[in-house]
Design a protein around this nucleic acid. Structure first.
Lengths: 221, 221
DNA sequence: TTATCTAAACGGGCCGTTTCGTTTAGTCAA
DNA sequence: TTGACTAAACGAAACGGCCCGTTTAGATAA
């Protein structure tokens, strides 16, 4: 699942950290003795259905059928559809880079490029879109999404913090807000199905963030 | 429904234009003679359910019950759940300002402020979130959302075009891309339930867009 | 008369839960 | 080491309930 489009010397670390234990850590609700069992088959079936048929056909019954598992088994391990969705997503989001090239524009371009590619070329895109959809009608999913985004922001904001330490970014810039603007752009592209951006176009967008839009140097204090 | 928080002399026009006929214009599928009939009651019931119970409880059966209408009547006039949703949304999105104060930061701040307030204080927020959720599993909703966003971008980009004509914004800035960044920020806030921003915080975000993040004036050509 | 309406009912699917035997992994005596 | 015991976890099937999109029947109104 490693993404080869960002060369290795550029990639500082691979995301996946930061929020790894916000999920309802698969474990039977009773004080049990036994082991997970068919949990992997269930996750795999869920991911396959999402990738092949999309969220519309994602149901616990369909997952159970495909995994040759009983519905009660699924409900024992995951309290809700949203929990299963988030579990599947968390295990797929490896592979997005958090680069450290020494230049902010390059870092952000590589980050967005990698994110778009990841969402486009792996089941992660459909899965994440499903999580967002579910979060619009299910409180537990909304809360999970919120806390996931929180972690994502904190983690990715480090790119901007490093740039600020290098003196590349002004001191008054809040890295968390800044990265939220960048992720917001990725978000709107994902949800409206427009992920097919050339690297040059991604860089142009990043420059709009970093350099601003003003014709003359900014005069604001 | 007019929003009084932006004073009148600042508001150039009230949005609602631009995409008003992308929707599947309520009309019976047969070549009919009669009039709409209970269409208004149906739309009202749909809006009420979304506002009171959220998308989770929004079903054609529930709308029909509440409007004391028959399900076939609804299906005759709106081909899908998504069509009814979009119809309701289109009739509620009046009231967001598209300001022209002569200053880009003020314009965008007022725009975002008004959008957040509108999404927070009217049923529009839940309704739009529902449209987005529906678009993740229903092709027709996805297409309608895409074309709606297209129109929204084109319309709001005029704020930036005006600033560019005033010489406030550099010539190389693409107004459509720029406004997409701004709307992306609003989007991520809506979908993660964080619309409660002070005007000052909104302005700070806008300044990050307009002025950029760099410590020193940008050196890019 | 004729098109539209409400209301009721259709078969089908999924929800989350309960019931029912069966499988399976740890425990412990022989 | 082996074999029997025990109890958690299992798959399958069925529950009542809600909703889907469609069909039918009978009332209503231009």
């Amino acid at each position: 699942m490693r993404n080869g489009n960002i060369t290795d010397h550029e990639a500082k670390d691979v995301v996946g950290a930061g929020v790894d234990e916000a999920l309802p850590a698969a474990r039977p609700s009773t004080g049990a003795r036994r082991n997970p069992a068919s949990a992997d088959a269930i996750r795999q079936a869920a991911a396959d259905i999402l990738a092949e048929d999309g969220y519309a056909r994602f149901s616990i019954e369909a997952v159970a059928r495909r995994a040759r598992a009983g519905k009660p088994t699924i409900y024992r391990w995951w309290p809700s559809k949203a929990a299963l969705l988030l579990d599947v997503y968390h295990r797929q989001k490896q592979g997005v880079v958090n680069p450290d090239t020494g230049d902010l524009v390059e870092d952000l371009t590589a980050f967005l490029d990698s994110l778009f590619r990841h969402w486009r070329d792996t089941p992660t895109g459909p899965v994440f879109r499903s999580v967002i959809a579910e979060a619009q009608s299910e409180d537990s999913a909304a809360e999970a999404l919120r806390s996931y985004m929180e972690g994502r922001f904190s983690h990715s904001a480090k790119m901007i913090e490093r740039a600020r330490e290098r003196g590349e970014v002004a001191a008054h810039v809040d890295p968390r807000l800044a990265i939220e603007l960048v992720v917001g752009f990725a978000y709107i592209r994902l949800l409206t199905g427009r992920l097919d951006m050339e690297t040059a176009a991604v860089r142009a967008a990043v420059c709009l963030f970093v350099d601003g839009w003003r014709a003359a140097p900014a005069a604001r204090p």
